[in-house]
Amino acid sequence: MNGWRAYAAVGLGSALGTTLRYLVSLATHATLGPAFPWGTLAVNLLGSWLIAAFAAYAALRVGGRVARWQPFLVAGFCGGFTTFSLFSLETLFLLELGRPGLALLYVLLSVPLWLAAAWWGDRFVRARHA
């Protein structure tokens, strides 16, 4: 997939992922409260799992449906769904609110869990489709 088609696929996937991220953050805000950025933590975990699962699946089934839809699914949906800029801002917001312990907890929870989620997504697909 080249040129404008790749841009269209990524733009559409990213619009969908971004919208879903926003809705998840509204939902967690309403149910769990604004004290901790649960929504961003959840989308970054889920997105890291998904991107590794898609990549593993595409690598195992070259020319398959997931491989062909990769710009939409990976750079598009997963890229828009997850966010580093909001993660950074939320960490600063927690510091600004005088909650340095929560800010530290947010960072220390997020980073290992992102990586573990990607590792698990990769493992999950390879174990089932090898």
């Binding site: 926003y22 953050s25 750079a75 828009g80 580093f84």
Partner: peptide, 23 residues
Amino acid sequence: WLFLVVGLLGGYTTVSSLSLQSL
């Protein structure tokens, strides 16, 4: 704010690629 930060910059930056590429 929703357009520029939650939408534009939120969609521009990515944690999923960071995780996959580091892995």
